[in-house]
Write a protein that binds this DNA or RNA. Structure first.
Lengths: 229, 229
DNA sequence: GCAAAAGTGTTCCTGATACACCCATGC
DNA sequence: GCATGGGTGTATCAGGAACACTTTTGC
């Protein structure tokens, strides 16, 4: 057993947002060394008495001001040398926010915060590029077997938003009729009596995800699945 | 930022073995406080200059003597209070071993090592019961979308072993003909020219998993899938 | 010859895929 | 009246599920 272990524990978050047919990631510009002025994932050291989840939520709030709608653990990165100063083990998280929680504001260690479309990412500090890639894979995979897409849309959304979300993130065409049929067959989205007008074209009914119904179906052995490719 | 962080980093491993139609887990009896004489997952503190994977492998070798055939990260547990002494964040791993690597031998912090059938588990130290449950879920899920079952069997195995492995771990009946047809249709297992005699009954051809072929198919977009339930 | 496990095909049915036209609105 | 996006049904096809008898060996 080592006499005294000298390793720090940090958390980092990859937070995705979706709006205007674009998938974006929340990044901060570091205000302190190392990698001062580089773009990086929001995150920081865990405090002695808070849980890992509390730490991510706190750091996100402090550094970016975003309110998170979905959060899960992604992976833990701990190779010696990933931080040039001390050994740091980083527990990374994967988060999603709705468009109306997009308001951001930099503070503490972050001198800037910005949403970057995933197609136009800057170089990232540390091994954050690796973490981000893993998060993108996770998002693509999960979209196909868990209804997490709804956490990227407004609570009430036109069907075309859902459809665009899938085609954009998975980068694949979908047959509109079959997609709608499939989603509706799950009986986890409900029609509302609201109607949405988007400039030109026929107005669209708004739908909403019924989470209670989803959990109930889960208990009965239901399995969400949208296969693309 | 906290002045000085006081958190330790550990690794723990849930190692599964399969033999004689039983799924077993590798546990150690702790030789030191806390939880002295309790059964626990093998693991321990990470040394300053080793990676997390190296740490698990080392601890497994030291404490149990097993050689691991498959290893992946499972989840990181870090709630304050999970260790009665210090705050310890544990990165847990999920491992599989083949029957012929079943030889075990206790050492260092472990005063005993033993394979426990998952149906007859003792109470575990710390939150190791939770970790073990998550590992069981992961195993069940992965069996259905990755060919990891082969890492629990001998390199060359009769088809019935594979079939029994699936029925045992997933706790569900499978149609022998459909199962064989499905697996063979993937073209990732090959017939060998060996034959295996198991007491009574007709001798069985031995098959082996072709990992190169599997990886090649993966690149072509192949997706392993055995759906049960 | 009988007990035990291995090996093997066909039918049916469900669910996925492919595909094109009409509708409601703004300008 | 035309441009824009929304809404809808059917026919075909592929893959999953159900199902039982024959073969080879040991005793």
């Amino acid at each position: 057993m080592p006499a005294i272990q000298d390793i720090k524990v940090a958390v980092d978050a990859v937070v995705f947002g979706y709006d205007a047919k674009q998938l974006s990631v929340l990044l901060i510009k570091r205000g302190v060394e190392p990698f001062k002025d580089s773009w990086a994932l929001p995150g920081g050291l865990v405090m002695d008495n808070e849980s890992l989840e509390t730490a991510v939520t706190r750091e996100l709030k402090e550094e970016t001001g975003v309110q998170i709608d979905y959060l899960e653990q992604l992976y833990t990165f701990g190779k010696p040398g990933r931080d040039p100063r001390n050994r740091v083990v980083s527990v990374s998280y994967f988060g999603l926010v709705r468009p109306n929680h997009f308001k951001i504001q930099a503070a503490t260690d972050a001198k800037e915060v910005q949403w970057f479309p995933v197609k136009e990412l800057p170089d990232l500090a540390f091994d954050h590029g690796t973490i981000l890639n893993m998060a993108k894979e996770r998002l693509k995979a999960k979209l196909q077997y868990q209804p997490i897409g709804f956490d990227l849309l407004n609570k009430e959304f036109p069907f075309s938003d859902l459809e665009n979300l899938y085609t954009t993130i998975l980068d694949h065409k979908i047959d509109r009729r079959n997609f709608r049929k499939k989603i509706l067959s799950f009986e986890i989205v409900e029609e509302t009596d609201k109607i949405h007008q988007k400039g030109s074209g026929r107005p669209a009914k708004l739908f909403k995800f019924n989470n209670k119904k989803y959990n109930q179906l889960l208990n009965e052995g239901f399995h969400f699945e949208i296969k693309i490719v």
